[in-house]
Write a protein that binds this DNA or RNA. Structure first.
Lengths: 237, 237
DNA sequence: TTCATACTTCGACGCTAATCAAAGTATTGC
DNA sequence: GCAATACTTTGATTAGCGTCGAAGTATGAA
């Protein structure tokens, strides 16, 4: 008699304006941090935390812990589909929505994430290394292949001995702030950044506090030669 | 900044358990009365009325007034699609749902609706008349074709003069209680029922208060000969 | 007409849930 | 080690809305 169809529970999750704002912000497929989602929804951090745990319990979003951050993403395309459907129904009498674009193009392109390369180029590098079978990645665990070990020693002039560290993994996938996809962290990620700087391929922006990384002309050319395959392939279509 | 995406508003409509029950009950595509929806949701009539007006304002359902009843149906297949999607998300951790079946088979098959034939056979008759081009129907307005006028005079022994009435239309689509599709009302619908009784094709159940209509064996055969085409076509496949 | 049914409106009650401030936990950076 | 950042938990406040009883409106039945 009193069968409780959970359709109401799921719909109620989306039914709160703050949560709906968070979910629509996640519809791009990117992952967002709790703070960003709080700002997106116009609420304080505690309120956002409460909402996010509810959405997670309801199976609509899933977290990925990344240092001090917690990145949330939709659990699947079916969730996005339902949200899209709801937006369609709402559009019959309602307004649409605008998303805030990225802010600093230079930051988006290349920047320091702790001690390694992030941004478009960081993501591109990891993608390319994966495609070239220099690494094996399962989830966030990454290991160098033998081919990859030779590559970093010969092409990037990195001493393999400098990569071992008591508590830090050699390779690790790190979720990118602007791209919301993984880039390379770990001691190798840090070593590569140091190597780029040493070879004068790139340098951190001199202004204090800036995380922007500037590539030199020759450095960018060398970088593209090593890791530009996917980008070239896309551009050539 | 504070752009209110109505996705939350729509989702909140579905988010209430009572309303969700109503909507799932409507997912069969049939129209249901306000009272039935109230019972379905386990709430009183006033509460149901409030919910229904909200759902209507939100564009999820639309009413059709039928005498003392108000039949509600989903506004379109897209609404059903979204509900189905929500049910899919809920099914990851939730329960499913059962619908109460029909009660009296004889009532479903043939009964009196005010003064005309309703039930399976009533709907079948209107479908067949439409297929045979005896009538033209746009929405709930129905008119007899010249072919149809000859038909009712010759086959059904109905005097065309008896069909005119000061305030009542000759033909009208009436929403069927069990089938939730239209059957034929108006003076023609009443005349046909009288004619069926006069020709001893059918008779009302003698027990007081009963609305069941019993067809005689020969009457059912004649009825099938005139209006059984669609049924035959389906059965023959 | 008069009565009955179906539905809506009004008014008041009660409960859930959203919200934020303050304190607590975890992780990074120095 | 200590400070800073990101996030969570706790607790108290508040507002919104679902709920129903009672009265009001409309339609059909006798």
């Amino acid at each position: 008699m009193k069968a409780g169809p959970d359709i109401a529970m799921v719909a109620a999750l989306v039914g709160d304006p703050a949560r709906a704002n968070m979910l629509t912000a996640l519809m791009t497929g990117r992952a967002l941090t709790a703070s960003e989602l709080a700002q997106e929804a116009g609420i304080t951090a505690p309120t956002a935390s409460s909402h996010l745990s509810k959405l997670e319990a309801g199976g609509l979003i899933e977290p990925e812990k990344q240092g001090r951050h917690r990145y949330y993403r939709l659990t699947g395309p079916d969730v996005a589909g339902v949200l899209e459907g709801l937006a369609g129904l709402a559009a019959r009498a309602g307004h649409l929505r605008v998303r805030t674009g990225p802010k600093e193009p230079a930051l988006r392109r290349a920047r320091i994430c702790y001690d390694h390369l992030a941004g478009d180029l960081g993501v591109q590098m990891l993608d390319s290394m994966r495609a070239q079978k220099l690494i094996r990645q399962t989830e966030r665990v990454i290991e160098l292949t033998t081919q990859g070990s030779r590559f970093v020693a010969e092409e990037l002039r990195i001493d393999p001995a400098t990569l071992t560290h008591p508590r830090r993994p050699v390779c690790k996938a790190c979720l990118d702030w602007s791209e919301r996809r993984h880039h390379l962290a770990g001691t190798l990620g840090a070593a590569i950044m140091i190597s780029f700087t040493a070879m004068k391929w790139a340098a951190r922006d001199p202004s204090p506090g800036s995380r922007v990384v500037h590539f030199t002309r020759s450095g960018e050319k060398r970088f593209e030669a090593l890791f530009g395959t996917t980008g070239d392939a896309i551009r050539k279509t």
